[in-house]
Amino acid sequence: MDLLNALVAILNYVVIPATAYGAQLALGALGVTLIYGILRFSNFAHGDTMAFGTAVTIIVTWGLQAAGVSLGPLPTALLALPFGIAITAALMLATDRVIYRYYRKVHAAPVILVMVSVGVMFLMNGITRLLIGVDEIRFDDGARFLITAREWRDWTGLAEPLTLRSTQAITVVVAAVVVWALFWFLAKTRTGKSMRAFSDNEDLALLSGINPNRVVAVTWIIAAALATTAGVLYGLDKSFKAFNYFQLLLPVFAAAIVGGLGNPLGAIAGGFIIAFSEVGVTYAWKKVAGYLGYNADGLLQLLSTEYKFAVSFVILIIVLLFKPTGLFRGKSF
């Protein structure tokens, strides 16, 4: 019984939250890795792209709610998501036209593009704050739980509670669908293949008649879709706050680099590695240890939650020291 309770505790406090968080990071990292693979720079504005996309989605959600539109048990934000993606994609394309295109034309070094993206990051950060403010916003509606602690106790009779929030389940389902769609697009469609070809060997792609402007535009649109989806799922699961999204940049980049920059499969694996490490290291294991017959004096928490970003940093440093191309052999720096 105690073993079962220990397993339920791990499931409830580590596995479920880390899976949802990992799915959100994976979507963010996919966007970073796609831009790195095709446009060949690390896009530091990605966190704020997530924030902007989420802010737009929240505003559309409010509009829908005011109009009385609802998805029943599902959050209204899912209905607003396509609008958020469309507007974010338009902003990305405009940014590319006004800013990035010039640097591509002069064949700027990747590090210059990174600095440019830092500028874009501050700009988007400002736009988001002007648009929706700096406060914390909760915008999840519909059913809150798929499994509540009380239901769980009634069903199983276990002392240890287990809850499954609907946003966690939605995160995993939506992320799975998005990842499947992206991989199908890259593997099967002509445009997707031309993007991979462009990422593989730009000169040969140009020689083969692949239109670089089209590849760049499609990349931005997909990156906008991934960033907005990741941001909305994160916001539904936790809450929306512009500054938190800026901070998300670190775990997102860590995930992309751990998996191997430029490698989509690696981005997904990296997302879950970072998420499970972060949650695992900051979880207080005292209760689980107690169920297993070890009564600890302390909390058995390796790191307090305020330091969770240190986990990404440490993993990042270890990977860059020992396997700079990442676990899935991406492009090295």
Binding site: R190, K193, S194, R196, A197, D200, N201, D203, L204, A205, L207, S208, G209, I210
Partner: peptide, 25 residues
């Protein structure tokens, strides 16, 4: 048709996809 001396394939794409990309136009 031009075959460069180096970097003349798409390394992470299959042989079939390489040929498809050749026929892109």
């Amino acid at each position: 048709g031009f075959v460069p001396q180096v970097n003349n394939v798409f390394p992470t794409m299959t042989v079939e996809e390489n040929l498809e990309m050749g026929a892109f136009i």
